[in-house]
Design a protein around this nucleic acid. Structure first.
Lengths: 220, 220
DNA sequence: AATTAGCGTTTCAATAAGTGAAATACAGAT
DNA sequence: ATCTGTATTTCACTTATTGAAACGCTAATT
């Protein structure tokens, strides 16, 4: 078990994660986050800096261009979107309603990263990349980490009148990466139907980054 | 200065870059790309895998969720979009036309990641996140790496009739990260005007990830 | 069928490389 | 003037990384 890991690299990546999580950290904070001595953290952060994965300014360390670049590449290529599309497809199949994948964008907004339109002739419509305010939307609450114990959020007639949005978090570890949501014309859905869909969405959302158990194990 | 780096980490990040660059690599390819011995590459890739930065399937290694996650975070926070917005602003200022930042999306499409509308009352209009086919569009050619020596691409009446698109690549090293484009109603622009704008766009695009020398230095 | 070529993987001894406590310097708060 | 927290450097210790070599495997090649 121990020989599969490379401690130095693990630590560096941990540090990178800490920097990206917080957006901006001081050396001491990062070191505490990653449980490293200041000197080690400093050395590793410098390596990350030299490779463009973090940038340093007066206030501390911040995510670097390389992260953005690789992230954009990966995000584009497939990954999240393609993984989510399966889930979106299934949700449309089961509900007939329009389904969306949202990620946080800048400044209190999120964007629709993937869209799968519903099959009802009266349905909610949006487009990939549309920006929505996080405040007051179901997806927004989810992305803000304010998902109640049930695992999903229902917002009736929030930002958009006449529609009910049901969203659940796509998690990576304990971070919310994206929100999966179903948006339904309010007149068509009862409270209990909404809850049923909520559980559906939550289940699909949970499966996106934690793929269902497969036979291919990491037996090593 | 050289001792500020941590070789193991550098190598791991190099490997990560190789994986993300190609989208999917075999161990041997990655090892060659990073100029590492197979055994070292394997060990490092396993660490990256264990931390979620790469995933492994039958076909090889691919970018992992962590990359997507951190990338999305960083990308949202600011970085590419906010950096590009300066350039977009300047282009609108100089041309009066709508300007866009495009990144490759999945399956032969790209999306508008940032938009700055022109000031003319008759102007091209689109929205953030709109998906466009890469094939036949100026941005598409740029994103596909098919930018001619001039450094920009002009497409007249391509996907959308009546409009002329002028795009240039946003590079990171030798990779195309995004495309910066200006879209103009064709009737308003001559061939030579298009070329002038082309050079403008190319210059702005070049500056986005290779910021121009500024007075605000990182004096360290 | 036998052979070659390439890949993924494991092993292991050599040593290169990372480690962290301690010391230094600095800045702000008490 | 003292204290607390930070960023940084140094250095002896030794752990953890390294890469050649060997292995088993699959897919072309002869």
């Amino acid at each position: 078990m121990a020989d599969t890991s490379t401690r130095t690299v693990e630590r560096a990546l941990l540090l990178l994660g800490a920097v990206c999580d917080r957006g901006r950290v001081s050396l001491a904070e990062a070191a505490r986050d990653a449980e490293l001595s200041a000197s080690t953290a400093l050395r590793l952060l410098r390596t990350l800096e030299a490779t463009g994965f973090v940038r340093k300014d007066d206030a501390g360390y911040r995510p670097g261009m390389r992260v953005v670049q690789l992230g954009a590449q990966a995000l584009s290529h497939e990954s999240l979107v393609s993984l989510a599309e399966d889930a979106l497809e299934r949700l449309v199949g089961k509900t007939g309603e329009s389904t969306y994948l949202n990620v946080p964008s800048h400044d209190g907004h999120g964007i629709y990263l993937a869209v799968k339109e519903g099959t009802h002739s009266v349905r909610h419509t949006s487009w990939v990349g549309r920006s929505i305010p996080l405040d007051g939307s179901a997806a927004g609450q989810v992305l803000a980490g304010r998902t109640p114990g049930a695992g999903y959020v229902i917002v009736r007639n929030g930002i958009e009148p006449d529609v009910t949005a049901i969203a659940a978090p796509v998690m990576t570890g304990d971070r919310v990466t994206a929100a999966l949501s179903v948006v339904v014309p309010s007149y068509r859905i009862s409270e209990s139907q909404a809850k049923t869909i909520g559980m559906l969405v939550a289940a699909e959302a949970a499966g996106i980054l934690n793929p269902a158990p497969m036979s291919t194990g990491d037996t090593a």
